[in-house]
Design a protein around this nucleic acid. Structure first.
Lengths: 372, 372
DNA sequence: TCAAAATATATACGCGCGTAAAAATATAAT
DNA sequence: ATTATATTTTTACGCGCGTATATATTTTGA
């Protein structure tokens, strides 16, 4: 029944600058008036509400003397406009939505953090949302963003499972830049990494330093990057004159370490591995695989004493702490997030849609660690 | 200047039941009317707006025939009330805030997920917020929750750095149950784990199966549980007639793996370790320590062939994939989250503050894996 | 000093929805 | 059928703030 639609809302508010907050906190105690709304604040500050409203929209839009009076009052009474009421009847806000596929994945958490900073620096207010790997929640996040009337949205889609149609509908209403994972022809632009280059890089490295790698991946990956990596692997192996060897394991959901561990264990136990080198489609799978190898007594790493080489992809925050540390390809987070933000702000500023959908791909960088 | 206060908002909306959504999606295409608000929907459904409003507040509060008419209309036009406008002038909402210290930590992500489910089951709408380890953002989260007029809040505080005074202020206005980390006398109740019991458990286990453990921890831990664990360690060692040995390392922030790795490396290199057994204050430190041991060629685990035993605390989702897998104490997530939710709902239902602040502590369970 | 330009005020309405009270209607009970 | 009860409708106002317009007050420039 319809009643059981119970939305879950994740909200977190972050204060960029804090010095002023502390000041306010220190002084506001003396006058414990109950400033409930803008009207109250207008009254005690002796300034009309429309002017106060203007100030909060853009502090430089009021006369300097007025601004100083307002800020003096702000130090006495720590009033702040109601964020939700604010957006209710605004034409254009300074809100920028940031939607990522999975909050609990440190990989995405780091990306979000990065993008967030760019948004703050540009004078916008980031609104970060996680879709928890659930395409319906992804749509829900976008619908919810709509209510905040965002100036634009930076969206890293879940991927293959995403409801492309409804996302496209959203993009018609709100300027949206896709990043991390592409959906063909959706959004004004896409910024991501060049899986072709990055996989080529690590496959070449592995081939040069030992046996050609097998490719360990999920049979039906959620992320479209995974599919690109698969074909990039095959292409590179072909180019180097090696026979591609795909290990496509079963598994659904986002518990990649578990899948890497379970299927890695199986592969090792079955002795179906035709090579001593395994390239995993992403670091989280590799982390599980490493654990499986350890438990089977297989020493992973370079050199004669090792039975196996394992490499990953993404430079997951955790890959520095695996045993051995994980050789991988790092994404240029900085460039991707900077460019995504820039692209969106350019769209917002020109107030027009992109004439053509621009796709920007950044190169990965080889990170040589202990595992391969 | 005050202008630079740029709040960051994290929002995610989750649809509990989805069958109805799909149905709506399938049928709403036929009539592409632009239902913008409740007035529009009232008009097309032929029912007055106050009744519609009543329905969305509680579907059972309207006559069955009316309800059916509304739901028939809902299938044709997929209208949903504006969440933010809804809360604007409500006396009491069904919103329940859930605030956790750090979103990107899989440990807290799992706890949040658990609590969330209980809130949904009770017919409330969870609003999950992460404080990113930042006490100001924690306060900001609470302030922001206030705007949503929540029926209650489940708060896992950052800990030692939390602004206890302002949190207490919040608790005066909104029924709040603390969990995971306690702040003395703040909130209506606290539900957590019994660090005394859990540390006693693992210290006893370690002593019985090998050398008494040293305690590896941060000198100035963020989390108050860490302090309890420290004294529990000392107490248990005393009781067992062993000399406590604290290894208190420097380090700030939330990058525990890095601290565990860096300081673990130092301790191992310095040979200041007086024992072959190390109990880490939490799993994330242990994960870093394990990595350090591996890099120093120290074999970790039980048995004669191993040079070191390492144990953790919490049963972090990742501790199943370390090399070796991590022996630890698991928190009773299920019990803690269930009890926290129950306690809050009892408070909400009776509509009165707790007569006395109740503290409930659950036992930990020993998880014997490979590392000790 | 005085007019022109810039800014602030007063006033009013809008956003999308909650909620209260009285009037109208439908249902249940007799 | 009639009365009593339960629901719905009408009407109106409130929440906290954006925004528009006319008016009043500065500030600026000459």
């Amino acid at each position: 029944m319809l009643l059981s639609i119970l939305p879950l809302v994740e909200i977190a508010i972050f204060e960029g600058s804090s010095a002023s907050l502390k000041m306010k906190r220190a002084t506001c105690r003396m006058s414990d008036s109950k400033i409930k709304n803008m009207d109250d604040f207008a009254t005690i500050s002796g300034i009309s509400r429309p002017t106060i409203s203007k100030y909060f929209n853009d502090a430089d839009s009021v006369r300097k003397s007025t601004r100083e009076r307002i800020e003096k009052a702000l130090e006495l009474y720590d009033y702040r406009p109601n964020f939700y009421a604010m957006n209710q009847n605004r034409r254009l806000t300074k809100n920028v939505g940031i939607v990522i596929p999975y909050m609990a994945d440190p990989h995405f958490a780091e990306i979000a953090r990065n993008v967030e900073n760019h948004v703050i620096e540009a004078g916008y207010r980031p609104v970060v949302l996680g879709s928890q790997g659930n395409p319906e929640q992804e749509i829900e996040n976008l619908n919810n963003l709509r209510l905040l009337k965002p100036a634009g949205v930076l969206l890293a889609p879940i991927g293959r499972m995403s409801d492309a149609g409804r996302i496209a509908d959203f993009c018609k209403d709100v300027p949206t830049v896709l990043f991390d994972a592409n959906i063909e022809d959706v959004g004004e632009a896409f910024i991501g990494m060049d899986n072709n280059q990055s996989i080529g890089l690590i496959v070449e490295y592995l081939c040069r330093t030992g046996e050609p790698p097998a490719f360990f991946e999920m049979l039906t990956p959620t992320n479209p990057n995974a599919l690109k990596r698969r074909s990039a692997y095959i292409k590179t192996m072909d180019r180097l004159g090696h026979q591609p060897h795909l290990i496509q394991v079963k598994g659904e959901g986002w518990d990649f370490e578990e899948i890497g561990f379970r299927e890695g264990s199986r592969v090792i136990a079955d002795r179906t591995l035709l090579t001593d080198t395994v390239l995993c489609s992403n670091d989280r799978l590799a982390i599980g695989f490493l654990s499986a190898a350890y438990q089977h007594g297989l020493r992973v790493g370079l050199g004669a004493s090792c039975a196996l080489r394992v490499a990953g992809h993404d430079d997951h925050p955790f890959s520095r702490y695996t045993c051995p540390t994980l050789t991988t390809v790092s994404q240029d987070y900085a460039a991707i997030s900077a460019r995504s933000a820039e692209t969106l702000f350019a769209l917002i500023d020109t107030d027009q849609r992109a004439s053509s959908r621009e796709v920007t791909l950044y190169d990965g960088r080889l990170v040589m660690r202990g595992s391969a």
